[in-house]
Deep mutational scan, measured.
Amino acid sequence: MAASAHGSVWGPLRLGIPGLCCRRPPLGLYARMRRLPGPEVSGRSVAAASGPGAWGTDHYCLELLRKRDYEGYLCSLLLPAESRSSVFALRAFNVELAQVKDSVSEKTIGLMRMQFWKKTVEDIYCDNPPHQPVAIELWKAVKRHNLTKRWLMKIVDEREKNLDDKAYRNIKELENYAENTQSSLLYLTLEILGIKDLHADHAASHIGKAQGIVTCLRATPYHGSRRKVFLPMDICMLHGVSQEDFLRRNQDKNVRDVIYDIASQAHLHLKHARSFHKTVPVKAFPAFLQTVSLEDFLKKIQRVDFDIFHPSLQQKNTLLPLYLYIQSWRKTY
């Protein structure tokens, strides 16, 4: 089996927390979720979201995140109150960019949308954001926290390059993509939290790379249903696996070995980020709550012996909000 052949990389499970039942964490995340308004986002309300009498641009960002990046939404709820709305805006910006690729039928249209967001970032730093909910909220975040323009532009530029429907040539190319998107998002989150620390940035770099790799793995069944495969070609070739094997949902050992190798790289990034947690300011830990969902996925895929098409991998963990709150309460990542 794939797991038994390579099992030495995987460390002990961390979500089991001995003695936790003896201490009762304060009510927090679930209460916040219940208090949030929840009407559906419609095209009509989106168009009017920044106008008078609408929910408001902040509510639009929150709803977009809740629907399109639920794990990011849950993590954002546990940030300090003064930072929450800015991170909602930042993550909503990322969602807007991420959904361009799947929402257009022609690359030219995707490039036009990316050009809109490039100009939007430029206009935000000229205090002239367009009348668009996410743009307005992002402008507020930039003004409030003096966010670095370079990180925002890196996210747009990398998403634009990724409009080509090509597999990553190697794991390094996937890591570079993750660094310029997910890690950049974390650098900006640290700025919102008021953290300027080399060790925190180092952790953000590795956690962002782990996030990018896990996202690529999780999306494999969806991409396969659209006749697309984006997994690193070098690892596929190493194990003699073709793109057609993934399109046919082949579950042979060599296919699972490909998934094992890729998942192991995410695991190593996560492990390395945690190896120097004592040197990272505690104030930075809330920015890294996504490690909970990353670890949850890596454990699940290990349990199914790296069968990327196993139905259990597509099921939401209903206990994730609780695990996130516990992680926040324990002040760790």
Rank of each mutant, 00 (worst) to 15 (best):
H199I: 11
E244A: 04
L231G: 01
A219W: 05
S103V: 13
A273F: 03
L186N: 13
G208L: 00
L188K: 00
N146M: 11
V100P: 05
E173F: 02
P129D: 03
K196P: 03
R159M: 06
E71C: 10
G194F: 00
Y323S: 14
C61M: 12
S105I: 15
P130K: 04
G51S: 14
E295G: 08
A135F: 04
Y168H: 12
Q327S: 09
L185W: 00
N162T: 06
T120Y: 11
N170V: 04
Y323E: 11
A178I: 00
L174A: 02
Q211N: 13
A284Q: 00
R256W: 01
S45P: 09
M237S: 10
L324T: 08
S105E: 14
R66E: 06
T148N: 15
A135S: 08
G240I: 02
I155C: 13
H206P: 00
D234L: 02
K119Q: 12
K154L: 05
K278M: 12
Y222E: 07
Q251L: 15
L152I: 15
R330G: 06
R159Q: 05
L193I: 10
H199Q: 09
D234R: 01
R84S: 05
H202T: 05
R68D: 04
A47V: 13
P129H: 06
M237Q: 07
E160P: 03
T279I: 13
K172V: 13
L190H: 02
T318D: 15
L64A: 13
V104K: 07
T279W: 11
N317S: 12
T318Y: 14
G194V: 00
R330N: 10
N128Q: 14
P52V: 13
D164G: 12
V142G: 03
A135V: 04
N254S: 15
K149V: 04
L268I: 11
P52C: 11
K300A: 13
G51L: 11
R150Q: 07
S83K: 15
S205F: 03
C75V: 13
D127L: 02
I213Y: 07
L186Q: 00
I109Y: 06
Q314T: 10
S184P: 09
Y333L: 06
L174T: 00
L324H: 06
A49F: 15
T181P: 01
A54Y: 15
I192K: 02
D201F: 05
Q302R: 07
D257T: 10
A135N: 00
S183N: 03
H277P: 04
M153V: 12
Y73F: 15
K161R: 11
S225I: 09
D201E: 05
E191S: 07
V142K: 10
A81W: 12
K101C: 14
K196M: 09
F276A: 06
Y222D: 05
S293Q: 12
A263P: 03
V304E: 05
Y70V: 07
L193H: 03
H131S: 15
H277Y: 08
L319N: 10
G212W: 00
L324S: 05
L324G: 03
N94H: 05
L231C: 04
I262S: 03
D257P: 05
Y260T: 05
F285Y: 13
L163D: 04
N128D: 11
Y260K: 06
G53W: 12
K107I: 13
H239L: 02
R68V: 08
H131M: 14
V156F: 05
Y333V: 03
V280I: 08
A47Y: 15
V304F: 08
A92N: 03
L198H: 04
S293M: 13
L231R: 01
R226C: 11
I109L: 10
E160M: 08
A141S: 10
A89E: 02
A49W: 15
D296G: 06
H145N: 10
I171R: 01
L190I: 04
D123V: 00
L294D: 04
H131L: 13
I195S: 05
E244P: 03
R169N: 10
V121K: 03
R144S: 09
K140M: 05
E191T: 03
W139I: 02
W151C: 06
I136L: 15
Q243M: 08
Q182N: 14
I124S: 03
Q182A: 13
S50F: 08
L313F: 07
V134S: 06
H272T: 14
A204L: 01
S293Y: 09
G212F: 01
V46H: 10
H131A: 14
L152M: 15
V46K: 06
R226T: 14
H267C: 14
C236T: 07
Y187N: 04
F230C: 11
N162S: 12
K143T: 11
Q115M: 06
Y187K: 07
T189G: 04
L138T: 03
P80T: 08
R274M: 04
T57D: 12
A284R: 01
G208N: 00
S183C: 10
R248S: 06
L268W: 08
L247C: 14
N128M: 13
K300C: 13
F306I: 00
I136E: 10
D127N: 08
H59P: 07
Y260P: 00
K271S: 15
H59N: 08
K300F: 00
R84W: 07
R68E: 05
I301N: 00
I192N: 02
L270Y: 01
K154P: 02
P281M: 02
L320W: 06
E295M: 10
Y222H: 15
L152K: 02
V104G: 11
F309W: 12
Y60D: 07
I213D: 02
T318W: 14
P130I: 09
E173A: 13
M237L: 07
I207P: 00
S76K: 00
H59F: 11
L174N: 00
H206S: 04
H239P: 01
V255D: 03
H59C: 11
F230K: 08
L322I: 14
R91E: 03
S205I: 01
A141R: 01
D197R: 03
L238W: 09
V87Y: 12
G72P: 03
K228P: 03
A92F: 02
R227S: 08
Q290N: 08
Q243H: 07
L97R: 00
A204G: 06
Y70D: 03
D157T: 14
Y125I: 03
K271Y: 09
I136G: 03
I195E: 04
G224N: 14
T120V: 13
R159Y: 08
D307C: 04
A287I: 05
Q251R: 12
K143R: 10
K271E: 13
M114T: 14
H310T: 01
R150C: 05
W117I: 04
A273R: 00
K299R: 12
Y168Q: 02
Q99P: 04
S312V: 14
N254P: 15
K316E: 08
F309Y: 13
I213S: 02
D157R: 10
D261P: 03
R218K: 15
A54P: 13
L319Y: 08
K331E: 11
L185Y: 03
Q302F: 05
C126I: 15
H131T: 15
Q327Y: 11
A167Q: 08
H267I: 07
D102N: 07
P130L: 08
L231I: 14
H272C: 12
M114S: 07
Q327L: 08
E63R: 12
L185I: 09
A219G: 14
F309M: 09
G72A: 15
L231T: 00
T291Y: 01
R159S: 05
K143D: 03
T215S: 08
G56C: 08
I171Q: 08
P129Q: 08
A204K: 01
T148L: 03
G240D: 12
D245S: 11
W151K: 05
V258A: 13
I259K: 02
Q115L: 09
D261Y: 06
I195T: 10
P311K: 10
S312Q: 08
I262Y: 02
A81T: 15
I259M: 05
L294F: 04
Y73T: 03
H277D: 12
R169K: 11
Q115E: 15
K253G: 15
D252H: 12
M114H: 10
R256I: 03
N180I: 06
K271G: 14
D305A: 06
A81D: 13
K271V: 15
V95F: 05
S50V: 11
A89I: 02
R226Y: 12
T220P: 01
A47L: 04
L79H: 14
